[in-house]
Amino acid sequence: MSDVPMSDVRLSDAPTSDTGTPLLRPVARPRPPSAFSNALVFGWRAVLKFRHVPEQLFDLVMTPIMFTLLFTFVFGGALAGSPGDYLQVFIPGILVQTVVFNAVYSGMGLSTDLGKGLFDRFRSLPIWPLAPFAGLMVGDILRHLIAGGIILGIGLALGYRPEAGVVGVVAAFLLLLVIGFGVGWIFLVLGLLLKTPTAVMTIGFAFLFPINFASNIMVDPATMPDWLQAFVDVNPVSFMTTAMRGLMAGTATVGEVALALAAPVLLTLVLAPVTLVLYRRR
Protein backbone atom coordinates (compact mmCIF):
# COMPACT_ATOMS: atom_id res chain seq x y z
CA MET A 1 0.00 0.00 0.00
CA SER A 2 1.28 3.39 -0.84
CA ASP A 3 1.70 5.91 1.89
CA VAL A 4 2.23 8.79 -0.48
CA PRO A 5 -0.85 10.95 -0.71
CA MET A 6 -1.13 11.83 -4.37
CA SER A 7 -3.92 14.28 -3.91
CA ASP A 8 -5.84 14.84 -0.75
CA VAL A 9 -9.53 14.35 -1.04
CA ARG A 10 -11.97 15.72 1.45
CA LEU A 11 -15.21 13.87 1.84
CA SER A 12 -16.70 15.21 4.98
CA ASP A 13 -19.77 17.40 5.24
CA ALA A 14 -17.96 20.66 5.54
CA PRO A 15 -15.45 20.94 2.76
CA THR A 16 -14.36 24.37 3.91
CA SER A 17 -13.67 23.41 7.50
CA ASP A 18 -10.21 22.08 8.05
CA THR A 19 -10.60 21.22 11.69
CA GLY A 20 -9.41 17.67 11.64
CA THR A 21 -11.29 16.85 8.45
CA PRO A 22 -10.18 13.34 7.54
CA LEU A 23 -8.50 12.85 4.27
CA LEU A 24 -9.04 10.01 1.89
CA ARG A 25 -5.85 9.26 0.09
CA PRO A 26 -5.53 6.99 -2.91
CA VAL A 27 -4.46 3.60 -1.68
CA ALA A 28 -2.85 1.00 -3.86
CA ARG A 29 -3.59 -2.68 -3.70
CA PRO A 30 -1.39 -4.69 -1.33
CA ARG A 31 0.24 -7.92 -2.46
CA PRO A 32 -2.60 -10.32 -3.38
CA PRO A 33 -3.28 -12.71 -0.51
CA SER A 34 -3.33 -16.48 -0.91
CA ALA A 35 -6.50 -18.49 -1.40
CA PHE A 36 -5.97 -19.92 2.05
CA SER A 37 -5.77 -16.47 3.59
CA ASN A 38 -9.03 -15.51 1.81
CA ALA A 39 -10.69 -18.58 3.24
CA LEU A 40 -9.48 -17.75 6.75
CA VAL A 41 -11.00 -14.28 6.49
CA PHE A 42 -14.38 -15.80 5.72
CA GLY A 43 -13.92 -18.16 8.62
CA TRP A 44 -13.32 -15.15 10.83
CA ARG A 45 -16.60 -13.69 9.56
CA ALA A 46 -18.41 -16.87 10.58
CA VAL A 47 -16.97 -16.58 14.07
CA LEU A 48 -18.03 -12.92 14.29
CA LYS A 49 -21.55 -13.97 13.38
CA PHE A 50 -21.67 -16.23 16.40
CA ARG A 51 -20.66 -13.29 18.55
CA HIS A 52 -23.23 -10.90 17.09
CA VAL A 53 -26.16 -13.26 16.64
CA PRO A 54 -26.21 -15.37 19.78
CA GLU A 55 -29.85 -16.24 19.01
CA GLN A 56 -28.66 -18.71 16.41
CA LEU A 57 -26.88 -20.60 19.17
CA PHE A 58 -30.11 -20.86 21.09
CA ASP A 59 -31.83 -22.63 18.20
CA LEU A 60 -28.84 -24.79 17.71
CA VAL A 61 -28.67 -25.88 21.32
CA MET A 62 -32.30 -26.10 22.38
CA THR A 63 -33.44 -28.61 19.78
CA PRO A 64 -30.82 -31.26 20.59
CA ILE A 65 -31.27 -30.77 24.34
CA MET A 66 -35.00 -31.24 24.01
CA PHE A 67 -34.66 -34.24 21.76
CA THR A 68 -32.18 -35.91 24.05
CA LEU A 69 -34.19 -35.38 27.21
CA LEU A 70 -37.59 -36.17 25.69
CA PHE A 71 -36.54 -39.29 23.87
CA THR A 72 -34.53 -40.62 26.74
CA PHE A 73 -37.13 -40.18 29.44
CA VAL A 74 -40.39 -40.44 27.48
CA PHE A 75 -39.54 -43.26 25.08
CA GLY A 76 -36.38 -44.70 26.62
CA GLY A 77 -38.15 -47.12 28.93
CA ALA A 78 -40.49 -48.41 26.26
CA LEU A 79 -37.84 -48.66 23.56
CA ALA A 80 -34.89 -50.15 25.44
CA GLY A 81 -36.15 -51.29 28.81
CA SER A 82 -34.77 -48.32 30.71
CA PRO A 83 -33.71 -44.74 29.96
CA GLY A 84 -30.15 -45.65 30.89
CA ASP A 85 -29.95 -48.44 28.31
CA TYR A 86 -31.58 -46.25 25.70
CA LEU A 87 -28.96 -43.54 26.16
CA GLN A 88 -26.22 -45.95 25.08
CA VAL A 89 -27.75 -46.35 21.63
CA PHE A 90 -29.44 -42.97 21.34
CA ILE A 91 -26.59 -40.53 21.99
CA PRO A 92 -24.49 -41.52 18.94
CA GLY A 93 -27.66 -41.42 16.83
CA ILE A 94 -28.86 -38.03 18.00
CA LEU A 95 -25.39 -36.66 17.25
CA VAL A 96 -25.79 -37.74 13.63
CA GLN A 97 -29.29 -36.31 13.47
CA THR A 98 -28.21 -32.97 14.92
CA VAL A 99 -25.34 -32.54 12.52
CA VAL A 100 -27.49 -33.44 9.55
CA PHE A 101 -30.17 -30.94 10.58
CA ASN A 102 -27.65 -28.22 11.39
CA ALA A 103 -26.31 -28.42 7.85
CA VAL A 104 -29.42 -26.45 6.88
CA TYR A 105 -28.02 -23.30 8.47
CA SER A 106 -25.24 -22.64 5.99
CA GLY A 107 -27.68 -23.02 3.10
CA MET A 108 -29.96 -20.51 4.77
CA GLY A 109 -27.05 -18.17 5.42
CA LEU A 110 -25.99 -18.43 1.80
CA SER A 111 -29.49 -17.65 0.58
CA THR A 112 -29.63 -14.62 2.90
CA ASP A 113 -26.28 -13.32 1.69
CA LEU A 114 -27.25 -13.78 -1.94
CA GLY A 115 -30.57 -12.02 -1.40
CA LYS A 116 -28.82 -9.02 0.14
CA GLY A 117 -26.33 -8.65 -2.65
CA LEU A 118 -23.46 -9.36 -0.28
CA PHE A 119 -22.14 -12.08 -2.54
CA ASP A 120 -22.15 -9.62 -5.42
CA ARG A 121 -19.55 -7.66 -3.56
CA PHE A 122 -17.51 -10.78 -2.86
CA ARG A 123 -17.78 -11.88 -6.47
CA SER A 124 -16.51 -8.55 -7.74
CA LEU A 125 -13.36 -8.89 -5.63
CA PRO A 126 -10.19 -10.48 -6.97
CA ILE A 127 -10.30 -13.35 -4.49
CA TRP A 128 -10.38 -17.13 -4.65
CA PRO A 129 -13.96 -17.78 -5.87
CA LEU A 130 -14.58 -20.58 -3.39
CA ALA A 131 -13.36 -18.65 -0.36
CA PRO A 132 -16.86 -17.55 0.73
CA PHE A 133 -17.90 -21.20 0.84
CA ALA A 134 -14.92 -22.03 2.98
CA GLY A 135 -16.28 -19.48 5.44
CA LEU A 136 -19.64 -21.20 5.49
CA MET A 137 -17.87 -24.47 6.18
CA VAL A 138 -16.02 -22.96 9.11
CA GLY A 139 -19.35 -21.78 10.51
CA ASP A 140 -20.71 -25.29 10.03
CA ILE A 141 -17.81 -26.91 11.82
CA LEU A 142 -18.24 -24.57 14.78
CA ARG A 143 -21.95 -25.30 14.89
CA HIS A 144 -21.39 -29.04 14.78
CA LEU A 145 -18.77 -28.94 17.51
CA ILE A 146 -20.89 -26.75 19.77
CA ALA A 147 -24.08 -28.77 19.35
CA GLY A 148 -22.21 -32.10 19.49
CA GLY A 149 -20.35 -31.06 22.63
CA ILE A 150 -23.57 -30.08 24.37
CA ILE A 151 -25.29 -33.34 23.54
CA LEU A 152 -22.33 -35.38 24.64
CA GLY A 153 -22.19 -33.37 27.88
CA ILE A 154 -25.83 -34.00 28.64
CA GLY A 155 -25.43 -37.65 27.76
CA LEU A 156 -22.47 -38.02 30.11
CA ALA A 157 -24.36 -36.26 32.87
CA LEU A 158 -27.29 -38.63 32.43
CA GLY A 159 -25.09 -41.70 32.59
CA TYR A 160 -24.02 -42.35 29.00
CA ARG A 161 -20.61 -44.04 28.85
CA PRO A 162 -18.65 -44.20 25.60
CA GLU A 163 -16.72 -47.41 26.08
CA ALA A 164 -14.00 -46.47 23.61
CA GLY A 165 -13.05 -43.51 25.78
CA VAL A 166 -11.55 -40.24 24.55
CA VAL A 167 -10.04 -41.76 21.41
CA GLY A 168 -13.39 -43.18 20.39
CA VAL A 169 -15.16 -39.88 21.00
CA VAL A 170 -12.58 -37.94 19.01
CA ALA A 171 -12.85 -40.39 16.12
CA ALA A 172 -16.64 -40.17 16.27
CA PHE A 173 -16.55 -36.38 16.19
CA LEU A 174 -14.22 -36.43 13.19
CA LEU A 175 -16.71 -38.65 11.43
CA LEU A 176 -19.45 -36.20 12.41
CA LEU A 177 -17.56 -33.32 10.80
CA VAL A 178 -17.15 -35.30 7.59
CA ILE A 179 -20.86 -36.08 7.61
CA GLY A 180 -21.73 -32.44 8.19
CA PHE A 181 -19.37 -31.36 5.41
CA GLY A 182 -20.88 -33.82 2.93
CA VAL A 183 -24.51 -33.09 3.76
CA GLY A 184 -23.74 -29.35 3.76
CA TRP A 185 -23.36 -29.38 -0.03
CA ILE A 186 -27.03 -30.29 -0.45
CA PHE A 187 -28.02 -27.11 1.31
CA LEU A 188 -25.46 -24.93 -0.41
CA VAL A 189 -26.97 -26.03 -3.71
CA LEU A 190 -30.46 -25.32 -2.37
CA GLY A 191 -29.24 -21.97 -1.08
CA LEU A 192 -27.99 -21.08 -4.56
CA LEU A 193 -31.18 -22.26 -6.25
CA LEU A 194 -33.86 -20.95 -3.89
CA LYS A 195 -34.66 -17.30 -3.42
CA THR A 196 -35.42 -17.20 0.30
CA PRO A 197 -33.84 -18.77 3.39
CA THR A 198 -37.27 -19.99 4.51
CA ALA A 199 -37.65 -21.95 1.30
CA VAL A 200 -34.27 -23.58 1.93
CA MET A 201 -35.40 -24.55 5.43
CA THR A 202 -38.81 -25.86 4.37
CA ILE A 203 -37.51 -27.97 1.51
CA GLY A 204 -34.54 -29.07 3.60
CA PHE A 205 -36.69 -30.22 6.50
CA ALA A 206 -39.19 -31.94 4.19
CA PHE A 207 -36.31 -34.13 3.12
CA LEU A 208 -34.46 -34.43 6.42
CA PHE A 209 -37.35 -35.55 8.62
CA PRO A 210 -38.09 -38.77 6.73
CA ILE A 211 -34.46 -39.78 6.27
CA ASN A 212 -33.73 -39.20 9.95
CA PHE A 213 -36.80 -40.88 11.39
CA ALA A 214 -36.79 -43.76 8.93
CA SER A 215 -33.39 -44.80 10.21
CA ASN A 216 -31.96 -46.74 13.11
CA ILE A 217 -31.36 -43.58 15.17
CA MET A 218 -34.32 -43.77 17.52
CA VAL A 219 -35.95 -47.13 17.14
CA ASP A 220 -34.74 -50.66 16.43
CA PRO A 221 -35.72 -51.31 12.78
CA ALA A 222 -36.73 -54.86 13.67
CA THR A 223 -40.03 -53.46 14.96
CA MET A 224 -40.82 -51.77 11.63
CA PRO A 225 -42.81 -53.16 8.69
CA ASP A 226 -40.73 -55.01 6.08
CA TRP A 227 -40.90 -52.35 3.40
CA LEU A 228 -39.70 -49.70 5.83
CA GLN A 229 -36.92 -51.97 7.11
CA ALA A 230 -35.76 -52.35 3.55
CA PHE A 231 -35.40 -48.59 3.32
CA VAL A 232 -33.80 -48.22 6.76
CA ASP A 233 -31.22 -50.84 5.81
CA VAL A 234 -29.94 -48.77 2.91
CA ASN A 235 -30.51 -45.33 4.40
CA PRO A 236 -27.13 -43.56 4.58
CA VAL A 237 -28.18 -42.07 7.93
CA SER A 238 -28.40 -45.63 9.31
CA PHE A 239 -24.86 -46.36 8.13
CA MET A 240 -23.64 -43.18 9.77
CA THR A 241 -25.39 -44.03 13.02
CA THR A 242 -24.05 -47.58 13.08
CA ALA A 243 -20.52 -46.33 12.56
CA MET A 244 -20.91 -43.67 15.27
CA ARG A 245 -22.13 -46.26 17.75
CA GLY A 246 -19.27 -48.52 16.81
CA LEU A 247 -16.66 -45.79 17.15
CA MET A 248 -17.89 -44.66 20.53
CA ALA A 249 -18.25 -48.19 21.82
CA GLY A 250 -14.93 -49.31 20.39
CA THR A 251 -16.47 -52.00 18.18
CA ALA A 252 -16.44 -50.24 14.81
CA THR A 253 -15.21 -52.14 11.78
CA VAL A 254 -13.49 -50.59 8.79
CA GLY A 255 -16.45 -51.66 6.69
CA GLU A 256 -18.90 -49.77 8.91
CA VAL A 257 -16.88 -46.59 8.78
CA ALA A 258 -16.43 -46.90 5.03
CA LEU A 259 -20.19 -47.25 4.55
CA ALA A 260 -20.76 -44.19 6.73
CA LEU A 261 -18.28 -42.19 4.67
CA ALA A 262 -19.73 -43.24 1.31
CA ALA A 263 -22.59 -40.75 1.24
CA PRO A 264 -20.60 -37.69 2.36
CA VAL A 265 -17.80 -38.47 -0.10
CA LEU A 266 -20.23 -39.02 -2.95
CA LEU A 267 -22.15 -35.85 -2.12
CA THR A 268 -18.94 -33.84 -2.09
CA LEU A 269 -17.71 -35.26 -5.38
CA VAL A 270 -21.00 -34.59 -7.15
CA LEU A 271 -22.24 -31.40 -5.52
CA ALA A 272 -19.05 -29.38 -5.04
CA PRO A 273 -18.67 -28.87 -8.82
CA VAL A 274 -22.41 -28.21 -9.13
CA THR A 275 -22.11 -25.54 -6.44
CA LEU A 276 -19.25 -23.88 -8.24
CA VAL A 277 -21.07 -23.85 -11.58
CA LEU A 278 -24.26 -22.45 -10.03
CA TYR A 279 -22.29 -19.79 -8.19
CA ARG A 280 -20.39 -18.71 -11.27
CA ARG A 281 -23.48 -18.62 -13.45
CA ARG A 282 -25.57 -16.36 -11.26
Partner: peptide, 16 residues
Amino acid sequence: GEIAMTGQFASLDEDL
Protein backbone atom coordinates in the same frame (compact mmCIF):
# COMPACT_ATOMS: atom_id res chain seq x y z
CA GLY B 1 -8.46 -6.11 -9.52
CA GLU B 2 -9.16 -2.64 -10.90
CA ILE B 3 -12.83 -2.05 -10.27
CA ALA B 4 -15.18 -1.70 -7.35
CA MET B 5 -18.93 -1.70 -7.37
CA THR B 6 -21.53 -0.28 -5.05
CA GLY B 7 -24.74 -1.96 -6.07
CA GLN B 8 -28.24 -0.57 -6.06
CA PHE B 9 -28.99 -2.30 -2.77
CA ALA B 10 -26.56 -2.25 0.12
CA SER B 11 -24.16 -5.16 -0.05
CA LEU B 12 -23.13 -5.17 3.59
CA ASP B 13 -23.26 -7.76 6.31
CA GLU B 14 -26.07 -6.48 8.51
CA ASP B 15 -25.02 -8.54 11.51
CA LEU B 16 -21.50 -7.15 11.59
